[in-house]
Design a protein around this nucleic acid. Structure first.
Length: 202
DNA sequence: CCGGTGATGCCCT
DNA sequence: GGGCATCACCGGT
């Protein structure tokens, strides 16, 4: 159960995005642990990547220029947050990895509550067991399930405190695709998923 | 929703 | 003109 060290994040953003697959995202909230296995990520390569917030340095994107291993969280579409980790090698100027989906491991009942996934609230959903997949299979869904919001922005993920990431237990085959929901740099194959994992988005 | 952007306006100099 | 504040609008990892 060791936390990923700073050196893990001080490597090329694309590499970190791949290596985060299988690692465990932990959020400790109200004395309870929420844990999910990272199954889908996307790399955003800062100043060379027109799809990245960090393509230009602005007050919002500044964290992606800051210390690697910290969280970068932003609010989007008026209703959800996205969770990124700052990662880049020495010769990159800015960069981050968007965590797009996790497989729930610990604290599933709390996640259901956070997502309003109670049988009483979603009878039609619970009719088909499949629907539970929707608990954390998207960037906005997983932050809601994990109770991650703006106040987690810039947290140091290498400190085992409130929000951190634990090393993976084993490597698994991954698949590489184009990134989702962007208009620029759509040719880059910077989305990564654990192969045959049913908790990824889409 | 809310940050980025470009437009507008005001005042200094 | 140029620096800065305000504002409306737009589009979103």
């Amino acid at each position: 159960m060791s936390v990923l060290p700073r050196s893990f994040y001080a490597r090329p953003t694309v590499q970190v995005a791949q290596d985060l697959l299988g690692c465990f995202l932990v959020h400790e909230i109200n004395g309870k642990q929420l844990i999910g296995k990272i199954v889908e990520t996307e790399a955003y390569c800062g100043s060379i990547d027109p799809a990245s917030h960090a393509y230009k340095k602005t007050p919002r994107s500044a964290p992606m220029y800051g210390s690697v291993g910290h969280a970068y969280i932003y609010f989007i579409y008026g209703n959800h947050y996205c969770f990124n980790v700052v990662a880049r090698s020495k010769n990159e100027i800015a960069g981050g990895v968007l965590v797009r989906a996790v497989e729930p491991i610990v604290g599933i009942e709390i996640m259901k509550k956070n997502r309003n996934f109670l049988p009483s609230a979603r009878p039609e959903c619970f009719a088909k067991a499949k629907c539970i997949k929707g608990i954390s299979n998207g960037p906005g869904k997983l932050t809601q399930a994990f109770g991650i919001s703006k106040d987690c922005n810039q947290i140091d993920l290498t400190k085992k405190e409130k929000l951190y990431i634990i090393k993976k237990e084993r490597s698994e085959p991954i698949i590489t695709t184009k990134r989702i929901g962007i208009k620029k740099a759509t040719d880059k194959l910077w989305r990564f998923c654990i192969e045959k994992n049913e908790w990824a988005s889409k």
